[in-house]
């Protein structure tokens, strides 16, 4: 019997689902042991019977959920998925850590609404949308802040290799594990130790990348060249089972899309700590909040207090 798979996407961009399709011909292999029974991006199964707002999803062995939880509707769907699926896979960094949309956690909802519905070029409005549209929750949450999650598959988006392997492991009843190392751990850069870097440069220029004097492929660690690279505090494996980290091999520093190395840690705190401990001035970058651009869920990013604690 193929395993029954259901998919839902919440506060998401569909990139995670496209990454599933990027398995290419392995997709056909996947369809041999997986039968997709609910997946709004790809098939017409509705959340419930017409007319009802009650979400009822078909029973499935595995539920893939992409995206974070930002509205009451997302929450309702997440809970319904939990109830109808034996295994829940948090697919992508939005689901595991909040992802890019959790950058919104630095602001109050009123400020978001106020701004987005009053941009230049928007006709004056006396109210924000409130009819039919779902209600915004106070923050953008990672999945496990609301439901229990069985497998975490971070990555923005996760590499198709990992998605394939995770589903395969469920099918074969094996445990699934992924890299516990950082992006740096398997980075081909040459590293000479601390070096003389005291400040960091902005990404206005590119790090040097050269074939080396002796024609050997090679480049010096981006951090040691003075560029912010989130490699040290980011979970490795984004290149899939065979390749090196994707941004690094595109010759550009990592920004941390696989989330922290240890699921619970704070990428920004770890990075600032690493920089400070190595004598690099952490105020040399204009801002560092975006070091949490992928993992601002779990309460790590909050609206900057309007009224100070008294």
């Amino acid at each position: 019997m193929p395993i029954k798979l259901a998919g839902e996407s919440l506060n998401a961009c569909s990139g995670c689902e496209i990454s599933i399709l990027d398995m290419g011909e392995r997709l056909l292999k996947l369809l041999e042991f997986v039968s997709i029974i609910h997946f709004p991006l790809l098939m017409d199964s509705k959340q419930g019977k017409n007319n009802s707002r009650i979400v009822k999803l078909p029973k499935a062995d595995v539920g893939l959920i992409s995206g974070s939880i930002k509205t009451d509707e997302h929450l309702e769907l997440a809970l319904a998925m939990r109830d109808s699926c034996d295994f829940i896979v948090a697919l992508g960094t939005c689901a595991t850590h909040g992802g890019i949309p959790a950058l919104a956690n630095s602001f109050h909802n009123e400020d978001l609404l106020e701004y987005c519905f009053n941009t230049e070029g928007t006709d004056k409005t006396d109210g924000f949308p409130s009819h039919i549209v779902p209600e915004l929750l106070d923050a953008c949450y990672a999945l496990d802040e609301h439901i229990n999650v069985d497998i975490f598959l971070p990555g923005c988006p996760p590499h198709p290799d990992h998605i394939f392997r995770a589903l395969q492991s469920i099918d074969k009843n094996e445990s699934f594990s992924q890299s516990k190392k950082s992006v740096c751990d398997n980075c081909p850069a040459t590293r000479d130790g601390k070096g003389q870097v005291k400040t960091l440069k902005r990404a206005l220029e590119l790090p040097r990348w050269h074939a080396g004097d002796d024609k050997k492929e090679g480049f010096k660690c981006f951090l040691e060249q003075g560029f912010l690279c989130m490699g040290p505090v980011t979970r490795g494996g984004c290149g899939g089972d065979k390749e090196h980290a994707r941004c690094i091999m595109t010759q550009i520093p990592c920004r941390g899309c696989y989330g922290p190395v240890k699921k619970e840690s704070n990428q920004r705190l770890s990075m600032l700590n690493a920089l400070a401990s190595n004598g690099i001035d952490i105020s040399s970058l204009p801002e560092t909040l975006s070091m949490l651009r992928f993992s601002g869920g779990h309460g790590l990013l909050r609206p900057l207090p309007r009224i100070k604690e008294s």
């Binding site: 400070a276 909040l289 309460g299 909050r302 900057l304 604690e309």
Partner: peptide
């Protein structure tokens, strides 16, 4: 000295998560 630079980091982070 390491602790001193880290203290700066800690203050920055505390502020952003709403802790005085």
């Amino acid at each position: 000295t390491k602790a001193a630079v880290r203290a700066k980091v800690i203050s920055v982070i505390l502020q952003d998560i709403g802790v005085d």
